[in-house]
Write a protein that binds this DNA or RNA. Structure first.
Length: 791
DNA sequence: AGCACGCCGACT
DNA sequence: GTCGGCGTGCTC
């Protein structure tokens, strides 16, 4: 018998462990690697992925595979390689990586059923159990209690089995049509409905059974039975609603666009593996280049994946691909229902589409002949998955195109520091689009020192200059965008009498008040307090709502500009599927004068009538103790500023800040990208941060404060030991320290950070040592390789 | 993750 | 002497 190597989908505490199973003869013809199988695992049955089939195994007493779930391999050869690479690169389980590649709709549900065991002597029971029964069926027939069942299992009268069921979320319709030789006189004379249906079919050729009114459905059934009408089952692919935003007509490419297009085309023509960094300012027309390259790929009979940070925030991109490639596009994102996702996935798997536009996980789209991956806004944080496998989409895409010899394009107006660095080192080919496609200048950014405003007696959130500009724009019937990167009403609620601050009991974070202070929420775990009217400590009713969020800003804007029409856009106002579209349309149609928003409005908002953009507090992110905070601030300012003056009208950006002298504010306000990157790179190099070193973050998490601390010491000690024993060079181990977010969901956290120039050796050792599972029970050691933040 | 094994304290 | 607490370790 052949042997299958199976990655079992269970959290065995050993990384990348594969188990060997015998392939029973009746399965050997249909089993191929990449298929899912059901295998016995201990006393359980488990789902697993076959990753190899071979002639022999060094392990003895192998068990047999119970069942095969896929006739065709679900995961291709290259994807198995990719999965193995991921498990190693991110120090996680193999099966977890395969799970991440597949849509949730393909997950099987398990049901517990019972069969008769060896010591079952009761003939009636035996007969009843000849087919597996559920608890409910057993109880109905024999009136047993759960204790009885437990007892039977112990005595081996009954055996519990897990049964795997494929969720059937395929959707079918029945198409009715007339049989070639059928005629009217086959139908009973008085059958009015049948005659009616016959005529409909004669006129229209075919109809969908499910769409018929009930009275005709019955007639249809009769006619099918008589053989007059034929009924064909067809699978339909549920199509997510597309957003209706009219597409702009694109004239010829600019010289810069043309050059970029030609450079990439050349690699495609030569079928050469290449990585490009397309660095184009906001409005420089990157999308048009993507579209033309996608077209080219299709003519080469290959497929393309287009990744965007979040579909709901980039409807324009989706829309343009859809209107250009129509039915050749599949859209994959988190907003789809499970069934919709599965349908899209199957469409891709069956080769029915050639383009996929999607968020992070779409990088795994199962194309058979993938030629190109485009990652737009490549600097965005959403490309890093926060749960296991904690992969970075850019890295995975790079690996995937490397495995198959495709082309990767990273596009951004504000590339990640790492990407620019890699471009300079020659790892990426750099293509620049330094000018807007319509040759409009970038809007001028005025920096306002809010400390100065304060000393001059202005205590409002609006500087005098911002007020002036808003008024001017409103007078001219132009639009205003105000950006504030924090949602809610206020960030801290303080008792004026005793100094008590409202905090989340399980997370130790201050609660953010919403709805003018009507309720308070923990933004991490969603714990809520309704209507806090007095201080729980001293019962004083004098509460201070400190710190500003978009809600409070909206209130202040409405007070200051009572006649303007104000709309707010943040996660809290985006409750329904259609919210984004609605706000977008209202703003586009000029029904809104002032739009307030979080980073949601930082991209994709391309409106010609916006002449004032206010960045209410630009340095909010600078106070966060994170090595990337300067870079993030720089990127955000640049992106938001790009919203102004997109068309004929000149735009103005007012940037309010408490630290005007900070280099990220200084350089972003003058569009001095290179100056900023040079300065930031120097700092990173001096402190040995990425891109000069890799980082591995170890979070030690447990519910007992003492245990976390001592275990964190052990983690740090174990790392230092590895460092010495393996003589790994150029590495430093920081910590253990209390995590910046010390308590979350009633769990305490400490962290250890490893910085190294020799990632490869660390990965080898940590994987081999099974590092995340080496520590005490009840303590979780979570590993994040190259985390985006240390908070 | 389950599930069994096994080693200790509180009972019939 | 035995029932059951949960720490430990294994699953091809």
């Amino acid at each position: 018998m052949k042997i299958a190597e199976v990655a079992v989908d269970c959290p065995t505490k050993q990384l990348n462990k594969v188990y060997h199973y015998l392939v029973p003869p009746h399965l050997s013809k249909i089993l191929s690697y990449g298929a899912r199988v059901i295998v016995p695992f201990g006393r359980q049955r488990m789902l697993g992925y076959v990753i190899d089939i071979k002639g022999q195994s060094e392990v003895e007493n192998l068990k047999q595979i119970i069942d095969v779930l896929d006739a065709d391999p679900l995961i291709g050869d290259d994807m198995i390689k990719l999965g193995k690479w991921m498990a190693h690169r991110y120090i996680t389980n193999l099966a977890v990586c395969f799970n991440a590649m597949l849509p949730a709709g393909l997950k099987t549900n398990t049901i517990e059923k019972y069969v008769a065991g060896n010591s079952c002597t009761n003939e009636e029971l035996k007969a009843f159990m000849s087919k597996p029964r559920t608890l409910g069926e057993l109880a109905k027939k024999f009136n047993v209690s759960s204790d009885d069942v437990a007892c039977y299992i112990k005595e081996k009268v009954l055996v519990k089995h897990k049964f795997f069921q494929q969720k059937s979320s395929k959707k079918y319709i029945d198409i009715l049509s007339l049989n070639a030789r059928s005629s009217k006189n086959q139908i009973t004379k008085g059958a009015f409905r049948q005659h009616q249906l016959f005529e409909v079919l004669q006129n229209q050729g075919e109809v969908v059974y499910q769409k018929l009114p009930t009275e005709l459905k019955r007639a249809a059934n009769t006619l099918v039975e008589k053989g007059v009408v034929q009924r064909n089952k067809t699978q339909v692919f549920r199509e997510p609603d597309s957003i209706n935003i009219k597409e702009k007509v694109i004239s010829d490419l600019t010289a810069h666009q043309k050059k970029a297009y030609e450079m990439i085309s050349e690699s495609l023509n030569k079928h050469k593996q290449d990585n490009f960094l397309l660095w184009g300012v906001t409005g420089s027309g990157k999308t048009e280049i993507y579209l033309r390259l996608a077209q080219k790929i299709i003519t080469q009979n290959k497929q393309v994946i287009v990744l965007v940070p979040e579909i709901s925030l980039t409807p324009l991109m989706v829309n343009r691909f859809k209107s250009r490639f129509k039915d050749d596009v599949a859209v994959l994102h988190s907003g789809l229902s499970q069934g919709e996702k599965l349908d899209q996935w199957q469409k891709i798997n069956e080769g029915k589409v050639k383009v996929v536009v999607g968020a992070r996980s779409a990088v795994f789209a199962p194309f058979k002949n993938l030629g190109l991956i485009i990652i737009d806004e490549e600097h965005e944080n959403t490309y890093k998955q926060e749960e296991n496998p904690k992969y970075n989409t850019v890295e995975v895409a790079k690996k995937r195109v490397k495995l198959l010899g495709g082309v990767l394009i990273l596009g951004s107006a504000t590339p990640a520091l790492e990407s620019i660095y890699k471009a300079q080192k020659g790892e990426y080919k750099l293509l620049k689009l330094p000018k807007r496609a319509n040759s409009r200048p970038m809007p001028k950014i005025d920096v306002i020192d809010m400390k100065q405003e304060l000393t001059e007696g202005n205590r409002s959130v609006f500087s005098r200059k911002l007020l002036n500009h808003i008024n001017n724009s409103l007078d001219n019937n132009e639009q205003v965008v105000l950006f504030l990167n924090r949602r809610g009403f206020s960030t801290t609620t303080l008792c004026r009498k005793c100094g008590f601050t409202f905090k989340c009991p399980s997370c130790d974070l201050t609660l953010t008040s919403h709805d003018s202070g009507n309720y308070m929420v923990c933004h991490y775990c969603h714990y809520q307090i309704a209507n806090p009217s007095k201080c729980p400590s001293c019962k004083s009713i004098h509460l201070a709502f400190n710190g500003i969020g978009t809600e409070k800003l909206q209130k202040k804007v409405q007070e200051t500009f009572p006649h303007s029409r104000v709309l707010r856009m943040d996660v809290d106002t985006m409750s329904s599927k259609d919210s984004y579209n609605k706000v977008y349309q209202q703003f586009a149609n000029g029904q809104v004068d002032i739009l307030i928003g979080t980073q949601m409005i930082a991209k994709g908002f391309d409106f010609p009538n916006v002449t004032t953009v206010g960045i209410v507090i630009a340095d909010m992110g600078l106070n966060i103790p994170d090595f990337r905070s300067a870079e993030k601030t720089f990127q955000l300012v640049t992106q938001v500023a790009g919203r102004a003056g997109r068309d004929e009208k000149e735009g103005k950006v007012i940037l309010q800040t408490y630290s005007p002298e900070h280099y990220s504010i200084e350089h972003s306000s003058s569009y001095e990208y290179m100056d900023f990157y040079t300065k930031e790179l120097k700092i990173r190099e001096a402190l040995n941060y990425p891109p000069f070193a890799h980082m591995i973050k170890f979070d030690i998490i447990a519910s007992q404060e003492e245990k976390v601390r001592s275990e964190a010491e052990k983690v740090s000690f174990a790392l230092k030991e590895i460092l010495q024993n393996h003589k790994i060079k150029k590495s430093e181990i920081l910590g253990p320290v209390m995590s910046p977010r010390y308590k979350l969901r009633n769990n305490y956290r400490w962290q250890v950070i490893l910085k190294t120039k020799d990632l490869k050796q660390w990965l080898d050792v940590l994987n081999k040592a099974n590092f995340p599972y080496k520590f005490s029970k009840g303590v979780r050691v979570s590993i994040d390789v190259d985390p985006l933040t240390t908070t």
